[in-house]
Write a protein that binds this DNA or RNA. Structure first.
Length: 492
RNA sequence: GUCCCUGUAGCUCAGUAGGAUAGAGCAGCUGCCUUCUAAGCAGCGGGUCGCGCGUUCGAAUCGCGCCAGGGACGCCA
């Protein structure tokens, strides 16, 4: 308190600050001048779409890798959450001055893909009435039967005639491409796009896997034991070591991931790598960071965000999304039913850390309970005002922001000025969910203003001033929605 | 057993580096449409921040220990 008083003595109100006061137990409060505040409306309009952009990242290169589901079947809601999280985070980081690359890692090697090939081959043969058994760890979902039928419709029985090894390879490859195309299409309809689709197989073909291993070997992190090759994570404080090459000589998923991260940091030289993984990969995090450290890279340059599980419900009724049970609800079905904007908003509205109930009933509701519409409605209302002004042949040109003096007007400006700070918080905490809450706050400030201040009136000067404010609010609202990957509707 | 996440209002959840009287939506109750979209606005009620101890001038936030829910601990990915 004493210190605050002493400091306050040396500070004087200026062009931005109206008054300075000290409050217990030692806060110094600055009150902004109204004319400074209103002048910011001009700044927002001047900045336009780039309003809210900051330079936190100073163009450092960051990769965001997300979704990366094994291309062995359709996406479910949990993957949708990861997709929305990743794409929004990428938007936020780009707005924060980072050079962002979005990547999908295609697991097109390894034993699960092998099981996929065999499953597809079996379904394919069965479709011709031939006896074929599904492999023990096969994919039993109905989509495999459909996939086989689709291929038959296009290619006929040509794979029956081939020797099994060849058929497996070619049919498998074809099936894989189809599944990937489907995944791409589903994500696209959620507004999720990638810059790079990275093939796991390529790591082996181009020798990077071997390079990564030799780095670890030179560091003394590789040991031969029990017929297998191990990464000695215990040397780095881990609970246990992990197998990288099996007794039969085939590399594990962990081995691929080692090569993949070698590629990210050493070949492609990203300053920072952000991986968004599902909750089931949580145990993989610490050993991956250990690997990065073992390759001589500061482990904090690798950030793994674990996106927790999603349970689907309709009202109070739980919807099963189990893969085994067969009555799996795919992401595609949820998007079709709920719509892209609502999906994105709901996936975004929780921190990645906490498990989520996705209530399809609520997401679909076109009513006050649904925050998606609340926010978009604000934008549509502004558009409507601007349309009316247009019909009356009036716009904001020459509007004098000094005419904006009432509390609802000033409150709206204050809220609009928060966007850059929200972007900074979302980027530095890697928490895009802040956007949802901000969007609702901003919409609330607008709705309140709308109720209390009529924009288009006979007072032409005031009308022009308020049109200016409303245009600025629209800019900020649209920017916020676009960062979230949502549309800003002109009418609803 | 070890590790990760969560526990805040009746419900669903926010709460940046520890800071002022802990916030929002929904649900409940009051009011508000002759004028730019009522998918809206204004107001009221509602909380031992899971429990305990500690660090601090100050803890929902940090540390330790419990309790409860979810998840991971494979030569699967």
């Amino acid at each position: 308190m004493v210190i605050a008083n002493a400091m306050a003595e040396f500070m004087a109100p200026g062009s931005e600050v109206k008054s300075i006061s000290v409050a217990r137990p030692g806060f110094i409060n600055f009150v902004l001048r109204d004319d400074w505040l209103t002048s910011q409306v001009e700044s927002i309009l001047w900045a336009g779409d780039s309003y809210g952009d900051i330079n936190l990242g100073q163009r450092s290169r960051v990769q965001v890798e997300f979704v990366s589901v094994n291309p062995t079947g359709p996406l479910h809601v949990g993957h949708g959450r990861g997709g929305v999280l990743g794409s929004t985070l990428a938007n936020v980081l780009a707005a924060s001055g980072y050079d962002v690359e979005k990547e999908y890692y295609i697991n097109d090697a390894g034993s699960q893909i092998d099981a996929f090939h065999r499953s597809l081959y079996a379904r394919y043969k069965q479709a011709f009435g031939l006896a074929a058994e599904m492999p023990p760890n096969g994919y039993l979902g109905g989509y495999m039967v459909d996939l086989a039928k689709e291929i038959i419709a296009e290619q006929g029985d040509k794979f029956i005639k081939l020797p099994e090894a060849e058929a497996l390879k070619e049919l498998g490859q074809l099936g894989l491409e189809k599944v990937i195309a489907q995944i791409k299409a589903d994500l696209d309809s959620l507004g999720v796009q990638f810059d790079v689709w990275f093939s796991e197989k390529s790591l082996f073909a181009n020798g990077q896997y071997a390079k990564a291993m030799s780095i670890l070997e030179k560091g003394g992190y590789i040991a031969q034991r029990e017929g297998a090759t191990w990464f000695v994570s215990t040397a780095l404080g881990e609970d246990k070591d992990n197998v990288v090459v099996r007794g039969d000589g085939s590399p594990t998923y962990f081995a691929s991931d080692i090569a993949y991260h070698y590629n990210k940091f050493i070949e492609r030289k990203f300053d920072k790598v952000i991986n968004i993984w599902g909750a089931d990969h949580q145990g993989h995090v610490s050993r991956m960071k250990a690997v990065v450290g073992a390759m001589g890279i500061p482990p904090e340059r690798l950030v793994v965000i674990i996106s927790q599980m999603v349970t689907l419900r309709r009202g109070t009724e739980l919807v099963k999304i189990s893969k085994r049970s067969g009555d799996i609800i795919t992401l595609r079905e949820v998007i079709d039913e709920v719509g892209r904007d609502a999906c994105r908003f709901f996936f975004l509205s929780r921190t990645a850390d906490s498990q989520m109930d996705f209530d399809m009933e609520l997401a679909k509701k076109q009513s006050a309970d649904n925050p998606v519409y609340y926010v978009q409605y604000a934008h549509a209302r502004i558009a409507s005002i601007l349309r009316l002004a247009g019909e009356r042949g009036i716009d904001f040109s020459g509007g004098d922001v000094a005419r904006l003096t009432t509390e609802p007007e000033l409150a709206l400006i204050r809220k609009a000025l928060f966007l850059p700070e929200i972007v900074e918080v979302a980027a530095s905490t890697l928490g895009p969910h802040h956007l949802c809450y901000y969007a609702q706050d901003l919409a609330a400030a607008f709705h309140s203003f709308y109720m209390q201040c009529r924009v288009v009136t006979d007072d032409e000067a005031l009308t022009r001033a308020r049109l200016k404010l409303v245009q600025a609010a629209k800019t900020v609202l649209a920017k916020t929605l676009h960062l979230m990957g949502m549309t800003a509707p002109e009418r609803m």
